[in-house]
Amino acid sequence: MLEIKNLNKVYPNGYHALHNINFSVPQGEFLVVIGLSGSGKSTMLRCINRLHDPSSGEILFNGVDTTKLKGSALRKIRSEIGMIFQHFNLIPRSTVIANVLSGNLSRTGIFKSIFGIYSAEEKERAMKYIDIVGLRGKEKNRADNLSGGQQQRVAIARALMQNPKILLADEPVASLDPATSHSVMQYLKKVNEELGVTVICNLHFLSLVRQYAHRVVALKAGKLIYDGKPLEINEEWFKTIYGEDAVEVTIN
């Protein structure tokens, strides 16, 4: 459903972040992207929903090249791609339900959303997703008063509110403790298996990768150097991806 062809990204300052990336993601896959910080993982994810504009290449999303889209067509594609972030990026000072409802902005009119007029159907759906991420009873709480793991679950519910075909997760557990990391990964797994949403997730910990990924791609200095099964990443591959001096740290 997602096909990336010869993707290149050069930043205005001349930094070449991505070199000729090629891969495709079938419907329903849980794909994990690994690599060192600065290897281009975040840039690649942001090219998919055009938070960054690729310099050249094609990104085919259900057959549509997203790299050329503008205005409302671009917003339409973005609404079908959910995204969660390392720092959650929730709306500050707002309740859980207001945050989840904001996932539906592309389908709510501008004035309706500004005055906070949401239909019963929208509220019902928001409650359903709050339920799915296990936050029932907290919908009226202010989101920024929740714990890190709970905030990330609000972010997942917000992404689900978009009814996404694909979910991008940019290091979703990098600012969480190990126990909470597993809980958030479990919810992503649930979204992938029960709702059939394709997931592309950037991760740092190989132990999480082995546990949750169907398939792994690895980036190094903006080049795709590995594409395969998570369990096939042996000592040798590990050293290639992370450098000679790297030691694997596990998270349980």
Binding site: L74, R78, G82, M83, F85, Q162
Partner: peptide, 10 residues
């Protein structure tokens, strides 16, 4: 962050 998140929802 929130600006990016809102842009990403379309």
């Amino acid at each position: 962050g929130p600006i990016e998140a809102m842009t990403a929802t379309g």
